[in-house]
Design a protein around this nucleic acid. Structure first.
Length: 661
DNA sequence: CGATCCCGCCAGCTC
DNA sequence: GAGCTGGCGGGATCG
């Protein structure tokens, strides 16, 4: 039975080169491990041409082997060492050293840390004092573990035989608890690098479908602003699924894919992923979210999809994760989901959720404008920044521009005044053409997405078209530029109206940039436009809003968490409290972390049809609530058997959709 | 001291 | 009831 229990580890010898027919079963590997048999240097333990039978794992209950001699916990690299020995020397030298020991945190330290790793490995393996040598935290990092994990499997498997993964065995092989393997496979599963075959069993797919997955995620991210679809695409219960590492991972990836700079800070991502923007207890949620994002980021780093870079800030530097994965996978999609995917890639409800003050710019379904989540939530007084421009991935496609833009302002926690500028859409179009070079030159630096000091309450939103229209290129990582500030105001069309919008949890606004203020559609809960309490004020009755941050592309500010000044070419939205203030700094009370400032206006407001405010499963398991979004990780449910229905409980086995896939 | 994230408890779920 | 899954957060380590 053990023979059948084991799983094939294909191409172990050449994990990244997809050397066909190089098969080493994990069983064999384990046996080697148990017997402390280490192949001679350069010895290939392969089963060339042997197609490892795929046992019927579905109904097999993996046996726990408490007696199994696990690798010394203090020598986490022991098994790796063994694997390396098993592998061919060239691979060991070329791949392992390059990949396995590549520090995941900072490229600057590659050489230095490689030495450390090598030294440590030698010590722990060749010397018998591993008991005394406690491996550093870094050596036990999830990132390194993921590197080892990935080294076991080829990026691009060849042949048709399944490459299955036994969590138990991999965990044993890597010398970690299975819990850690879950962290890895969940992220990998979110990108469909693996899929769950049975309990304790996963299938390794590798990267052939990565681009496709990323493309779908990208499209989802872009479609997220399509509020109607967000409302309609409801298929399954959100609940705890929202929080799963898989979903979170996909969301995290989406942030990169829809971001023009393709840079995301964990701080930003965490806030975006925090669901209850009004919940004062969000601080702990934030911390937890960040923890998970670290986990995800480490795995994604191991996949070479992102890397951590440091950007200079006023005070020190800030870590930012930058997307280094593929970006050209969109070419054939032309902004449209493929037919089969269209039904599957439905928005998960949690994707509707954004922190207070976060802005969406929904466009038409085919709009070419992605949504940039690189924004700050209002929670800490810093605001969100939103790009309204085309992402880098859009540079080569989607010449069609949305005729008019919709600003999606979900769940404002405070009453806001939206300053509507009435630039004719035609004028926008004329300014639209833009070269890639220009786009790049205008690309903001990482620091813009990096966490800012809490005192900095600025929120920057920008529209690519308007930025061209209003502002010159600018360098990144700089406070509001004076030149921009000087230049922008004169170019902004005169605001024709101000719109006062009372806050209401779950209330979303849909502002049509191409329409007159009177035609603005306000959309509670992101549903169809309907009337809502608001007041339109002639601009003459409100002092001009001082633009304080108009660096390139930043043609609107959010000075307070809930107040926005944005310019989408056709309109701008301004916060009331900033009128006449002339400062982009938030007041102290607005800098309260993770809390919503008390509403300034008491108002009776009809509750939203459906609260946009998310709820954690703990708090709410809204019966009948529907997920508005489905990520690839949840596609299994859409294609067949329901997968994990709720909670972190054992997932149902879903063989059908996996086989189909 | 803030950033990072390892570690393992334990609840929810399937078998 | 055993075992799988993974959310979760304490707290150790790192810089």
């Amino acid at each position: 039975q053990m023979e059948h229990e084991c799983l094939a580890l294909r191409d172990l010898v050449s994990p990244r080169k997809s050397r066909a027919n190089s098969v080493l079963t994990l069983q064999e590997n384990i046996c080697l491990d148990r017997r402390k048999i280490t192949p001679h240097k350069g010895e290939h333990v392969t089963m060339n041409g042997r197609k490892v039978p795929t046992p019927d794992l579905t109904h097999m209950t993996p046996i726990k082997h408490p007696e199994r001699t696990l690798p010394d916990p203090w020598t986490p690299t022991a098994n790796l060492k063994m694997l390396i020995s098993v592998a061919s020397p060239d691979i060991r030298d070329r791949e392992m050293k390059k990949t396995l020991f590549r520090p995941i945190e900072n490229e600057d330290k590659v050489a230095e840390e490689e030495e450390e790793e090598d030294t440590e490995m030698d010590d722990s393996y060749d010397i018998g004092d591993e008991f005394e040598k406690r491996p550093s935290r870094k050596q036990k990092s999830l990132g390194l573990l993921c590197q080892k994990f990935l080294a076991l499997y080829p990026d691009y498997p060849t042949g048709s035989e399944a490459v299955s993964i036994s969590l138990d065995e991999v965990a044993a092989n890597l010398g970690v608890e299975r819990r850690r393997i879950y962290d890895i496979v969940n992220v990998l599963e979110s990108l469909m690098l693996v899929s769950r075959l049975a309990k304790n069993q996963y299938l390794w797919h590798g990267r052939p479908r990565l681009n496709e997955t990323l493309q779908k995620l990208q499209q989802q991210g872009r479609q997220q602003r399509y509020h109607l679809q967000m409302e309609q695409a409801a298929t399954s219960s959100a609940r705890r699924k929202d929080k799963s590492l898989r979903i979170m991972s996909q969301k995290f990836v989406m942030l990169f894919l829809v971001s023009k700079t393709q840079m995301v800070t964990l701080d930003t991502a965490a806030k975006i992923l925090i669901e209850e923007s009004h919940d004062m207890a969000n601080h702990s949620k934030y911390k937890t979210k960040v923890r998970r994002l670290y986990d995800i980021a480490n795995v994604l780093t191991s996949l070479s999809l992102i890397k951590k870079v440091y950007v200079k800030e006023d005070r020190g530097r800030k870590p930012v994760f930058q997307w280094i994965g593929p970006t050209e996978f969109h070419a054939q999609a032309n902004g449209q989901l493929t037919a089969p995917m269209k039904g599957k890639m439905v928005r998960h409800a949690s994707f509707n959720v954004v922190p207070t003050s976060a802005l969406h710019f929904p466009g038409e379904g085919h709009s070419s404008e992605p949504l940039d989540y690189s924004r700050k939530s209002a929670s800490d007084g810093a605001a969100c920044r939103l790009q309204f421009d085309e992402g880098a991935y859009m540079a080569s496609q989607a010449p069609a521009f949305t005729k008019h833009h919709l600003a999606y302002l979900p769940s404002l926690s405070q009453p806001s005044v939206l300053m509507l500028y009435g630039a004719p859409p035609a004028a926008q179009e004329s300014s639209r053409p833009e070269t890639e070079e220009k786009r790049k030159s205008e690309e903001e630096g990482p620091s813009q997405t990096a966490k800012r000091p809490k005192r900095d309450a600025k929120v920057r939103l920008r529209n690519r078209r308007t930025k061209q229209q209003f502002t010159p290129a600018c360098s990144h990582d700089s406070p509001p530029r004076e030149d921009g500030e000087r230049q922008s105001p004169p170019r902004i069309p005169a605001a024709s109206h101000y719109l006062y919008v009372p806050n209401s949890p779950g209330l979303n606004f849909l502002l049509s940039a191409g329409h007159a203020p009177g035609g603005v559609a306000l959309s509670p809960g992101g549903m169809s436009a309907l009337a809502m309490p608001c007041v339109l004020l002639p601009s003459s009755q409100i002092p001009p809003y001082p633009l304080t941050d108009s660096r390139a592309g930043v043609n609107f500010n959010v000075v307070t968490p809930a107040h926005f000044v944005l310019g989408a070419g056709a309109f701008a939205v301004a916060g009331p409290s900033d009128f006449g203030r002339g400062s982009a700094l938030s007041s102290p009370e607005q800098a309260k972390p993770y809390g919503s400032p008390a509403p300034r206006f008491k108002h009776s407001f009809p509750p939203p049809l459906r609260s946009q405010t998310p709820h954690t499963p703990k708090e709410v398991a809204a019966p009948g609530s529907k997920a508005l979004f489905q990520t690839p990780a949840t596609l299994g449910a859409a294609t067949g058997t329901a997968r994990r229905k709720r909670g972190s409980a054992q997932r149902r086995l879903d063989i059908g959709h996996l086989m189909a896939s």
